[in-house]
Simulated assay, not measured.
Amino acid sequence: MRRLLFGTLLVLGLAALAGLGSARAQAEGVGCGAGTNGSNGYAYAGHQSTSIAHGIRATITPTAAASVAAGHVAGWVGVGGPGQGANGQTMWLQVGVASIPDTPAMVYAEITRPGRDPQFIPLVQNVRVGESHKVAVLEIAGRSNWWRVWLDGKPVTDPILLDGSTNRWRPIATGESWNGGESVCNRFAFRFEGVAVAGSAGGAWQPFTPGYLFQDRGFGVKQLSPSGARSLSGTTPTPYAFEASSV
């Protein structure tokens, strides 16, 4: 199992964030069954935050069984990306739910440090449809540029140094498909609830405000609750929620 994860899911790290910080034109034309020309077979359905933040959290639930003919699908939250670090370095940090062919879904974390291969960390195996997990990446209070991955309210990694990362990134929450370079259509359905960003290192959570929309051909994003909407008490903003799925 471990060999399968690191042999197949390493690809998730090598290009999981490819193109997410670029112009919309780079994403147009990518979708279900797309080949490798220009898109490397990647397609997305999700959002990038309008604001720079110190972390992002969400409760992610697979709402239907994934169908993965080749490559992988995933629903994740994270920060960073190729060339998004200081001095154009590639670094990112993400956590979410992923599926590959003939393997049960899993919760994973992924750490990419400058000049190193991505590190894939399986956290929970055999994630069922309807099973929810609270996930987060968060900069540590009082330790600029040091981050941790959180799962169900507990830190699950040691402190992670990403030099020059503080006050740099607009977090992302998205569904993703990679077709493995084959003309296949992978299917997924993820619900993202309680999506929030950290206003300061260590927390100060506030509702996620969606900015850039990733919605490639063959995949959809459905808003469930608006950012900034008020609760019934009229005092607390409603956390952002959306569904990302194949259509």
Rank of each mutant, 00 (worst) to 15 (best):
R2F: 01
L4Y: 00
L4N: 09
L12N: 04
L12D: 01
G13E: 01
L14I: 08
A15P: 00
A15D: 08
L17G: 06
G19T: 02
S22C: 04
E28W: 02
C32P: 06
C32G: 15
G38F: 02
Y42T: 04
H54C: 06
A58E: 04
T59C: 07
T59H: 03
T61V: 08
A69E: 10
A70Y: 01
A74K: 03
G75V: 01
W76K: 14
V77S: 13
G78I: 00
G83L: 14
W92M: 15
W92L: 15
A98G: 09
T103Q: 14
P104M: 08
I111W: 00
R113E: 11
P114N: 13
F120K: 12
F120C: 13
V127K: 04
E131S: 06
V135E: 00
A141Y: 10
A141L: 04
A141W: 07
G142Y: 13
W146Y: 11
W146S: 08
V149E: 06
L151H: 06
K154E: 15
P155M: 04
V156Y: 05
T157A: 13
L162Q: 14
T166G: 11
W169F: 04
P171E: 08
S177V: 02
N186E: 03
R191W: 03
E193N: 10
G194W: 05
V195D: 07
V195L: 03
A196Y: 07
A201F: 05
W205A: 02
T209V: 15
P210C: 10
Y212R: 09
F219E: 00
G220L: 06
K222D: 11
L224C: 00
A229K: 10
L232Y: 05
S233P: 02
T236F: 07
Y240I: 06
A244D: 08
